[in-house]
C-alpha cells in the first residue's frame, strides 16, 4: 500500500472505532456528572458525583435484578450444556428408532420464527400458573436447538474407538459423555455457553410478558420498566442503571473477545 492510502485507511478505521466506542465512554462519564453537565461532550466530569448511582439504586431493586439475571442465565446455560449434550450425544452416537425424526424436528425448530410461538407460549405459561415465577423465565429455555445441533456436529467427529474401549471397561453412556466427550468438546461447550448466557442475559421481551413483580424482574426488564415508568427522572440516572447491565458484559468481553465473536457470530448464522 502507498503511504497516503495507508494513512487514509488508519484514519478511517480510527473514526469508525470511535463511532463504536465513544458513545459507551460518553455514557460511562455521563453517569458521573451532575444533571446540568450531562450534555457536554467532555469525557472527564467537571464535578465528579456518584449521586446518579445512589438515586438509581434507591429507586428500584437493581441489586435484586442483577442476582435474578445471574441466576436465570446461569441455570439456563447449565441446562443447555448438560441436558443438551446428553441429547446431542444420543443423537450423534447411539442407534435408536426415532433418531432421524428427532434430528429433522430439531432442524425444523430453527425455521420457526419466535413471533409465531410467542403468544401460545405465553398463554401456556398463564394456564400453568407460572406467571411471576422463575420457572416461567427458565423452563422454556432449558433446551436450545442450535446448541444441540452444534454439539451433535462436534460429537460426530470423536472416534468410535474411544467409545468402544470405554464400553469394554464397563463405562455407562453418561460416564462416557462426561468423562471422555466433555474434555474433548471444551471449545464447542465454551461457544454454546457464551451464546446461551448472552442470549438469556440480554432477553427482554419474554420477561416483559411473564413477570410483573419487580422483585423477580431480570436486569434488562427492570431497566426498561424503570426507563418507561419515568423512575429515572434524569438522563444521568437512567444511564447509570444501564451501566449495571453493561459493565459485567464489557469486562467479560475484554478478556474473552475472540470467543464472544466466534460464539455469537456462529450462533446467529446457524440460528
Amino acid at each position: 500500500m502507498r503511504p497516503v492510502v495507508r494513512a487514509g485507511l488508519y484514519a478511517a478505521l480510527t473514526l469508525a472505532a470511535l463511532t463504536f466506542i465513544y458513545p459507551f465512554l460518553w455514557m460511562a462519564s455521563s453517569t458521573l456528572k451532575p444533571p446540568f453537565e450531562v450534555g457536554s461532550l467532555a469525557l472527564i466530569p467537571h464535578d465528579l458525583t456518584f449521586e446518579n448511582y445512589r438515586i438509581m439504586w434507591s429507586r428500584a431493586p437493581f441489586g435484586r435484578a442483577l442476582l435474578n439475571s445471574v441466576f436465570v442465565a446461569s441455570t439456563i446455560t447449565a441446562s443447555v450444556l448438560v441436558l443438551g449434550s446428553m441429547t446431542a450425544y444420543a443423537m450423534a452416537r447411539l442407534t435408536f428408532p426415532g433418531r432421524r425424526v428427532l434430528n429433522a424436528v430439531t432442524m425444523g425448530v430453527l425455521l420457526v420464527p419466535g413471533q409465531l410461538t410467542l403468544i401460545p407460549l405465553y398463554t401456556l405459561i398463564v394456564q400453568l400458573g407460572w406467571i411471576d415465577t422463575y420457572t416461567a423465565l427458565i423452563v422454556p429455555y432449558l433446551f436450545n436447538a442450535t446448541a444441540i445441533l452444534m454439539l451433535r456436529q462436534f460429537f460426530l467427529q470423536i472416534p468410535q474407538s474411544l467409545i468402544d474401549s470405554a464400553r469394554m471397561d464397563g463405562m455407562g453412556e453418561l460416564r462416557i459423555l462426561f468423562t471422555i466427550f466433555w474434555p474433548l468438546a471444551r471449545p464447542a461447550l465454551a461457544i454454546v455457553a457464551i451464546f446461551t448466557f448472552m442470549g438469556s442475559w440480554n432477553e427482554v421481551l419474554w420477561p416483559l410478558l411473564v413477570v410483573r413483580d419487580q422483585q423477580l424482574m431480570t436486569l434488562p426488564q427492570l431497566l426498561t420498566v424503570f426507563q418507561l415508568g419515568g423512575g429515572a427522572g434524569t438522563l444521568g440516572v437512567s444511564l447509570a442503571a444501564a451501566m449495571v447491565l453493561v459493565v459485567p458484559v464489557v469486562v467479560a468481553y475484554m478478556f474473552l473477545q475472540r470467543y464472544f465473536i466466534e460464539s455469537m457470530a456462529g450462533a446467529g448464522v446457524k440460528g
Partner: peptide, 29 residues
C-alpha cells in the same frame, strides 16, 4: 482490536442500546 471494537455493540443488550441512543438522540442535551 479493530474487529473487537466493531463487534462491541453486538454483545450489548438491545435495551441498553435503546436507552443509550435515546440519550444520544435527545434534542436538547
Amino acid at each position: 482490536f479493530w474487529r473487537a471494537t466493531f463487534f462491541l455493540p453486538v454483545v450489548i443488550s438491545g435495551a441498553v442500546v435503546a436507552i443509550l441512543w435515546n440519550a444520544l438522540y435527545a434534542t436538547d442535551v
